[in-house]
């Protein structure tokens, strides 16, 4: 399954939107935190986990999903939320802790909930697998051909929830896809020091379901592998497991000293930038020109400017609103 010209362009644009969103967030995050860094200061306080470099995972999979399909994400969720079509203004406002945010300021960046887009995420590692199974079960019980996709880092594949979910999904033949984003590190711990097998895709065999490893952080390769898995799920043939090799350009969180990373590693990774590679491919294929690329990037900046301005200009919730929403 090859992406159409439109799909390629959507992936390209969305990857740029994600990248620039994260770069901009990195800048905003350090507002009020310089010269002295304090995690609780500035317009965006708390932990911040950015996904620059991991765009191919999001766009390659999300190309096959619609609003009816459910996505659960981990603590590093922005790329997935953006590719799923989560309202960018409301998401950004949430990250700024504003009343106009997705959760009216209650959740923050690790806890984004967009009911209309069937997107949610959690700050707990491996916590997104079981709810994705539940969404898939709900679709199946209601006779819908909707699917659910759970995303998590490679560190999450050592959680009990991952293995329990694989078994249950296989047993009940649920229309669910478990996607492991292998960005090489669980905070500071490299994959080889945490995981007994070279690729988590191999673990699918233990549950009698298909498992595919997608190397090279390439959106088109992700598109192809995810296409097969989603189609299988829609046709009632059950779950699949994908592991996608990807790269984390920033630290685990903003402020991470990254002493565990070899010097120059990030520069090497950036030399293999999936956006630049797709750009070359699109240029060579005559799909993209210098002019259309510039216009596209300008439109992306305008969209971001709108979202960030909305977030900045929105009011904070009233303090007493802290007491609301424990129950509906």
């Amino acid at each position: 399954m090859q992406p159409s010209r439109d799909q390629l362009m959507w992936m390209y644009r969305t990857m740029i939107l994600i990248r620039r969103y994260e770069e901009r967030m990195a800048e905003v995050y350090f507002e009020g935190k310089t010269p002295r860094f304090d995690i609780g200061w500035g317009p965006v306080p708390g932990e911040m986990h950015l996904a620059a470099g991991q765009e191919p995972v999001a766009v390659g999979v999300m190309s096959h999903l619609g609003d009816h399909d459910t996505v659960t994400g981990p603590h590093r969720p922005h790329h997935l939320a953006i590719a799923k079509g989560v309202n960018l203004k409301a998401m950004t406002a949430e990250i700024f802790g504003k009343k106009t945010g997705l959760g009216q300021g209650k959740g923050g960046h690790m806890h984004l909930f967009d009911v209309a887009k069937k997107f949610s995420c959690s700050g707990l590692v491996g916590a997104g697998f079981p709810p994705a199974l539940g969404a898939a079960l709900a679709a199946k019980m209601q006779g819908k051909n909707w699917v659910a996709v759970a995303f998590a880092g490679e560190g999450a594949a050592n959680q009990g929830s991952f293995h329990e979910s694989l078994n249950l999904a296989a047993l009940w033949k649920l229309p669910v896809i478990l996607v492991i984003e292998d960005n090489s590190y669980g905070i500071s711990v490299p994959k080889a020091a945490s995981t007994a097998v070279p690729t988590n895709a191999d673990r699918a065999a233990a549950y009698g379901i298909p498992g595919a490893f997608v190397p090279n952080n390439d959106p088109v390769a992700v598109f192809e592998a995810a296409g097969i898995a989603v189609e299988r799920a829609r046709q009632g043939q059950g779950p699949s497991l994908l592991e996608i090799k990807t790269d984390r350009y920033f630290g685990h969180f903003q402020g991470d000293p990254e002493l565990y990373r070899p010097k120059g590693e990030v520069d090497t990774l950036k030399g293999h930038d999936p956006i630049a590679r797709l750009r070359t491919k699109l240029m060579e294929g005559g799909v993209l020109s210098e002019d259309s690329d510039a216009a596209l990037r300008k439109a992306v900046e305008a969209e971001l400017e709108e979202a960030y301005a909305f977030a900045r200009n929105s009011p904070y919730p009233e303090p007493t609103e802290a007491l609301k929403h424990v129950f509906v």
Partner: peptide, 16 residues
């Protein structure tokens, strides 16, 4: 803490 989860937004967290 008045029996609510800890909210993210600064004015909400400071309130609880």
């Amino acid at each position: 803490v008045p029996d609510v989860p800890i909210p993210y937004s600064r004015p909400l967290e400071q309130y609880v």
